[in-house]
Each structure stands twice: as structure tokens, then as C-alpha cells.
Amino acid sequence: MSQIPMTVEGAQRLRDELQELKTVRRPAIIQAIAEAREHGDLKENAEYHAAREQQGFCEGRIQDIEAKLSNAQIIDITKLPNNGKVIFGATVTILNLDTEEEVTYRIVGDDEADIKNFRISVNSPIARGLIGKSEEDVVTINTPAGMVEFEITQVQYL
């Protein structure tokens, strides 16, 4: 498995979720399984089967997070000198040259992407079109609405 780029905040959120799963969810599920076993016949015990299913999801998520963290390339953009170039982790303000609409995105890893909070995946078409460009560059990006021209008005390493 190759390196997965991740911001410091994204890695911390995954560590926090892993801690929650291991110390809170897993023991609660084990307790639920134990209680369901006491009800008798396991073949027709819906509580037992539901708890076992939850256990499977929980263990799967724990393995998923551990794999991602073990392959994470954590990038702390605040420690890099800002040369105006768009890189992973940068906060980029772009101006749509057709509509004059300005929007600010942060380029993050796949697991951290959240368009409602203006965090776009490094693998998204917009991010791929912006990476490597600099402030004041005009870029043409193939969006779902077609080809759109944007001007990069600001690049911040926050």
C-alpha cells in the first residue's frame, strides 16, 4: 500500500476515533454480546446477532483506521515556507472568472474531504487542477458543469 497524504488535523481525528472505538465502543459491544448470550438460544436471539454484527463493523473500522494511520504521510503545511504555490494542505482562494464568485478551499486527504466545510480531496478534479499552480495563475478546470476558468487569488499555508 502506498503512502496516504494526510493533514495533521486529519490524522488526529483518526487517532481520536480509533481511541473511541477501542476504549468505549468495543467494550460496550462485548458487554452487549455477553448480556445477549444470557438470554439463551443463540440461533433465534436477535440481540445477540445484532451485537455480533456491530462487533464486525467496529473491528473492521479499527483495522481500516490502523491501516490508514500506518501508511499515512502526515504533512504539516504550517512548517513549510509559503512561496505562493498550491500544494497538499494549502488553503486556496479561487475566483470563477465567468461568475465572479470567489470560494476558498483547503486541499486535504480523501478521508478528510468535506465539501460542506470547503475541504476538498487532493484527488478531486478541482484540486488536481490547482496543485502546482501559483497565486495569480489562471487555470481551466473540467468541472461537472463543464470547463471553468479560475484565477488563484490567494494561497495560504494555515
Score class of each variant (00 low, 15 high):
Glu53Ser: 15
Glu151Asn: 12
Thr7Asp: 03
Val103Lys: 14
Met147Cys: 04
Asp76Thr: 08
Glu20Pro: 06
Gly109Pro: 08
Ile4Val: 11
Lys22Pro: 03
Asn117Ile: 05
Arg25Glu: 06
Leu130Tyr: 03
Gln55His: 12
Asn82Tyr: 01
Gln54Cys: 06
Pro144Asp: 04
Asp114Asn: 13
Asn142Lys: 10
His39Met: 11
Val24Glu: 15
His49Arg: 11
Phe118Ile: 02
Gln54Met: 08
Met6Trp: 05
Arg52Gly: 05
Glu35Leu: 14
Asp64Pro: 07
Leu97Thr: 09
Phe150Asn: 04
Gln154Asn: 15
Asn96Gln: 07
Asp137Glu: 02
Asp111Gly: 12
Arg128Ala: 06
Ile65Ser: 11
Gln63Lys: 15
Arg13Trp: 00
Glu53Gly: 14
Pro81Glu: 09
Val92Pro: 12
Pro5Asp: 02
Glu59Ile: 08
Met1Cys: 07
Asp98Arg: 11
Thr153Trp: 02
Lys133Phe: 02
Ala36Cys: 05
Glu100Lys: 07
Leu97Lys: 08
Pro27His: 09
Lys22Thr: 13
Ile4Tyr: 01
Arg26Asp: 00
Ala113Ser: 12
Cys58Gly: 11
Ala50Pro: 02
Gly10Met: 05
Gly84Thr: 00
Tyr105Ala: 06
Leu69Glu: 07
Glu102Asp: 08
Leu130His: 05
Pro81Asn: 13
Asp111Glu: 14
Lys68Trp: 00
Asn71Ser: 15
Gly10Asp: 05
Tyr48Trp: 06
Asp98Pro: 08
Phe118Leu: 10
Ile152Asn: 00
Glu44Pro: 05
Leu158Gly: 13
Glu59His: 06
Val108Gly: 00
Asp114Arg: 10
Ile87Asp: 05
Tyr105Lys: 03
Leu95Thr: 01
Leu69Ile: 07
Asn123Leu: 03
Gly56Thr: 12
Lys79Arg: 14
Lys85Met: 06
Arg25Val: 14
Asp16Gly: 09
Gly56Ser: 11
Ala36Arg: 04
Val122Met: 04
Phe88Cys: 05
Val8Thr: 14
Thr91Val: 15
Val148Gly: 03
Leu18Asp: 04
Thr153Gly: 13
Phe150His: 08
Gln12Asn: 15
Ile4Thr: 11
Ala50Asp: 09
His39Pro: 01
Ile87Leu: 05
Met1Val: 11
Lys133Pro: 10
Lys43Phe: 03
Lys43Ile: 06
Thr140Asp: 05
